[in-house]
Every structure is written in structure tokens, then in C-alpha cells.
């Protein structure tokens, strides 16, 4: 049997809320070791797609395939960066504690995080440039800082596949560049990084694979091959040219 060349595949996937389809008959394969952007207009089903891949939502039909059954071992190889707006940042805890939560899956039930987890968390905070904030109460963070904490919490999982839902939201340009460098490092180590991304201007700079979706898969392939005006126009209903800017 040859080594699988994909990180994750979905077959005939459909998702609907109350009869209203959000994803329709999706078939796609995401290759291993690539930086992948999932791009599409608002309400196109981008977040839904990664949530289904993560097993957080049940599709109406179809299946997600990681090339092996979803076991505890495989779970540990999958990391997730949710949108930072999805939690209550007034929760009474510290930055370091939130980052350590990324190790809870490895620790399993009952075991508490210890020195090793703490050291690892500090290392990850350093990677995202937040080491000075380790003992800070999380309610004092800005939106961009919250994103970086969530990124650190995913990095500490030391996974093979990373799913990130708009990780650059509210992050300033300089920080965004350093975070992208971080993602490129992950790719160099052979990891797969799947990012829901909004800024069409930066797709070509940041990513090497792109999935264009709007209810259906509009395109799925290397950025150089499929990220062109015709596909964008189809995805965005004619507004693609405008959105991509002068090129």
C-alpha cells in the first residue's frame, strides 16, 4: 500500500440547517504538507466545512476521511483554532492556563497539567510573541492577542493537521506576517495547515493550495493553477475581479 498523499478528504458531503443547505455535495481532497486556504464569500460554508472535518458537526450525508479511523491517537494529531469570538474572554483564568488547555487531550481524563506542560506553553507563547503575557488575566487582551493565544493553544497540541478559522482576524499587519512565517515553519516540518481566510490579496503570498467554496466546491488545487479571476468570479458571483484588486 502506498503512503497516502492526502491529509483529509471529504466525499459527497452535504450539510443543512433546517432544510437550508450550507454545503452541497462537496468532494475534495486536501494534500499533505501544504498551506491551504479555504476561501469564499460570507455564508459560503467555510466554518461549517472545517467543523464537519473536525467532527464537531454531523453532516446530513457524506463522510470525512483522514485515511484511517478516527481513534484517540488520530485525534491527538488534529489541532483546532476556533474564531476567538466563540468564547467568553471574561473567564477567570490566565493566558498560560488557556495555552495549556491544548495539552488536555494528550493528558486524558483526570491527569493534571504539570511542569512539562507549563514549559511547553511558555515556549509556544514565545513563538507567538506573547511570553510577556503568560500570567495575564485573559480579559485584558486585545482581539489580536486573543487570536495569538488561540494559535499558541493549537501549536502546543503538536499535531499533524491544523484547522484554523480566520486566525488573522483583528491582528495587525506586522503580527500577521510573523504568524504566517510560523505557519510556513509548520509546513516545512511536513504539517498540513488548513486556514479559513478572508483576504484575497494575500492568498498568493501566504498559501500554496486553495479551496474556493460557495455552497459547492468551485475550485480546489494549487494556488498558481486555480486562483484566477474566472474561478473567483464564479465563487463570488461576479465580484471576484473587484475583490482581488488590481492585478
Amino acid at each position: 500500500m502506498k503512503e497516502k498523499d492526502f491529509a483529509v478528504r471529504v466525499h459527497d458531503l452535504s450539510v443543512a440547517y433546517d432544510m437550508k443547505p450550507v454545503l452541497w455535495d462537496i468532494d475534495l481532497s486536501i494534500p499533505r504538507g501544504k498551506l491551504v486556504a479555504i476561501v469564499g464569500p460570507n455564508g459560503a460554508g467555510k466554518t461549517t466545512l472545517i467543523k464537519v472535518m473536525l467532527g464537531l458537526m454531523k453532516p446530513v450525508s457524506g463522510a470525512v476521511d483522514f485515511g484511517e479511523p478516527m481513534t484517540k491517537k488520530l485525534r491527538k494529531q488534529i489541532a483546532y483554532v476556533p474564531q476567538s469570538g466563540s468564547v467568553d474572554w471574561d473567564f477567570p483564568t490566565t493566558v498560560l492556563d488557556v495555552v495549556m488547555m491544548g495539552r488536555y487531550g494528550h493528558l486524558g481524563w483526570f491527569t493534571r497539567p504539570g511542569k512539562a506542560e507549563k514549559k511547553l506553553a511558555l515556549d509556544m507563547l514565545e513563538k507567538v510573541g506573547m511570553q510577556a503575557f503568560a500570567s495575564r488575566q485573559i480579559s485584558q487582551l486585545s482581539g489580536g492577542q486573543q487570536q495569538r493565544i488561540f494559535l499558541a493553544r493549537a501549536l502546543i497540541q503538536q499535531a499533524d493537521i491544523y484547522f484554523m478559522d480566520e486566525p488573522f482576524k483583528g491582528v495587525d499587519a506586522q503580527t500577521e506576517r510573523s504568524l504566517v512565517a510560523l505557519l510556513k515553519d509548520l509546513k516545512e516540518q511536513g504539517k498540513t495547515v488548513v486556514v479559513v481566510h478572508h483576504d484575497l490579496q494575500t492568498v498568493e503570498d501566504y498559501f500554496d493550495w486553495v479551496t474556493l467554496i460557495n455552497l459547492h466546491v468551485m475550485a480546489n488545487g494549487p494556488v498558481k493553477e486555480v486562483f484566477h479571476e474566472e474561478n473567483l468570479a464564479r465563487t463570488y458571483g461576479g465580484r471576484g475581479l473587484l475583490l482581488k484588486g488590481a492585478q
Binding site: L56, R75, P82, S86, M101, G105, R153
Partner: peptide
């Protein structure tokens, strides 16, 4: 603690 703060992330970890 994890589940009170971020239930969806807890689910993604396999809890």
C-alpha cells in the same frame, strides 16, 4: 474548566 471556557475546543480534543 476547559468545558466551561470553550466546549467546542474540548470536543475537538476528543472529550
Amino acid at each position: 474548566k476547559l468545558f466551561s471556557f470553550d466546549p467546542e475546543f474540548a470536543a475537538s480534543l476528543g472529550f
